[in-house]
Amino acid sequence: MKNITTIFLVIFSTLAFSWVGLVLSSHLNLGGLEPTTAELDEEGNPIEGDTLNPQPLSGIARTGKDIYVDQGCIYCHTQQVRAKGFGADFERGWGDRQTVARDYIYQEKVLLGTMRTGPDLANIGARNPSKEWHYLHLYDPQATSQGSIMPPYPYLFEVREIGDTPSPNALQVPASSAFAPPAGYEVVPTERADALVEYLLALKIDYELPEMKNSQ
């Protein structure tokens, strides 16, 4: 009877130990990070007047992030650039610098990811700023990237009859696409596609942080 309490405590303590060691300590270490400037003054404080980075997402990009989350993009795409010399993240042009803990502080949900069935997206907005490309790529990945195994997202678009004049935001879907619209029809992004593309374009690591000096 009395033993169960003790056993409970032992079993619990082993896990509590790792939790304190891994989770809590990193929370203490990293949980208080604030945005800062690329250069610091002598006391290590941000320089007044310089831009503080990272910056939070705009409203529509936030909506786009929700779509990224509910479609499960994270299961094939990471959002992290590893240090030079570890993997080929730099050589593949996925980012100009390694990402660090501070880059993620404004993200209510951090989408580091663990799979690269597709390429890293930490810096996709800077790597490929073409809206048209992203729309077409989401509608039919094969149309922009022959041989891609990314799932198409036709349901984020609307196929509708062309009115008096074609819609200005209609996609230029090549006729060879498996999802090419029938004659007289056009493909128009829904609000969800707009938001998702806005989010992708907002993914940029185009600023410097002071810790980059030491770590590359």
Binding site: V23, S26, H27, L30, G31, L33, A101, Y104, I105, L112
Partner: peptide, 9 residues
Amino acid sequence: PARGVVQPI
């Protein structure tokens, strides 16, 4: 949600 990369940890 904890801040930043504490989440993936």
